[in-house]
Design a protein around this nucleic acid. Structure first.
Lengths: 204, 204
DNA sequence: GTCTATACACCGATAGAC
DNA sequence: GTCTATCGGTGTATAGAC
């Protein structure tokens, strides 16, 4: 504590950046990129709109920073997974984790494969590098799960990985929540079960 | 043919409305509601922007008309399903149908449960009535499929129905298409299989 | 009804005082 | 760096001539 000197101004600066990212994260999960305005962000954080641009030079950069933070957390969660767990268990657990994140307003809504944001992300090297790492880790797990016999061999790897990505922003969650018949935990378990064992269930 | 008299002007009018709806359908499936502009629509149809408002009084009305047409087609497809097929077969077939529609650019991207469009749809009686009919039909099929033992009893009915809705606008389709490793038909079959039998497959 | 032209609001980004 | 004020551009919707 005493040996390291961090300027107070810098601490304040970084704390404000975190606050901005938190606000953007929540807004992105509620309204999505297109409907979120810089005025929304400024109001949520409690700073002037102009001040935002001293931290992030564009709306796309701001969203990219949030996506990078989310990918970092995902990678960290993947790496902290107990290595002795079966691969399919690890896949289930990462889906469970991302769905819980979603429930807490922590998963930005992706505007499909089109739009200005996706183009900006594809030109962001930090984002691409992280996405590649996460993707590699996922594919390795799928490979192992298949050789364990826990994931069907006739389902292409890409289908498995993309499906897991897609479940974390599946509108089914919103519909079920609006219904109000199931608790958040029940929704998560239903989604995990449906993803891995299908609507037909295990009985066949 | 001879007994009924339909004014030429009216035919022309209705033909143009169909052309407008086709264009909007395609644009909605490509860009989604928020990113689609009335200029896009006008350009695609080949009429002036102002003329659009003689047919549909707002952008929301325009999108609602497309959604209603899609729901009508869905209901029709449901009703034309061979009654002697097992319920689960009918559910699979309707998912297959809607995914093929999606491939042809026929499924608008819904902006989740929020946004101006959803609010407008919830105040559109024609839309609500159709949605209710489709929903009722779906729930009846799920009930039958469960008593046949083809859908797991411990999966709540709402989860089944919402999941089927969500699959028709699942971003997984976009990702797989961008990859280019699977044909459109293979993507549809992979999605159907994953939805009903899960990533783990049938072997357990 | 279809066109051109425009009103009105909103948004991303910037300028300039402090 | 933070604020207020504003620019430039775009989008929905409308007005008015034909």
């Amino acid at each position: 504590m005493l040996g390291i000197k961090i300027p107070f101004k810098q601490q304040q600066f970084e704390a404000r950046e975190e606050a901005i990212l938190d606000a953007v994260n929540r807004l992105l999960s509620e309204k999505g990129f297109d409907l979120m305005t810089m005025d929304d962000v400024a109001d949520a954080v409690g700073v002037a709109k102009g001040s935002l641009y001293k931290h992030f030079s564009s709306k796309e950069k701001l969203a990219a920073a949030v996506m990078i933070r989310l990918l970092s957390q995902t990678l960290e969660t993947l790496q902290q997974m107990p290595a002795d767990w079966p691969a399919v268990r690890q896949l289930e657990e990462i889906l469970r984790w991302s769905l819980h994140q979603r429930m807490r307003g922590g998963v930005p809504l992706l505007p499909s494969t089109r739009g200005a944001l996706q183009r900006a992300l594809m030109m962001n090297l930090e984002y691409l590098a992280l996405a590649f790492k996460v993707n590699t880790k996922f594919h390795a797990l799928v490979e192992r799960a298949k050789s364990d016999g826990d994931v069907a061999r006739d389902v292409p790897d890409e289908v498995v990985v993309y499906t897991l990505y897609a479940r974390s922003c599946d509108p089914t969650v919103d519909y079920l929540r609006r219904d109000g018949k199931l608790s958040d935990d029940q929704i998560v378990e239903a989604m995990v079960a449906a993803t891995f064992h299908g609507l037909a269930g295990l009985k066949k």
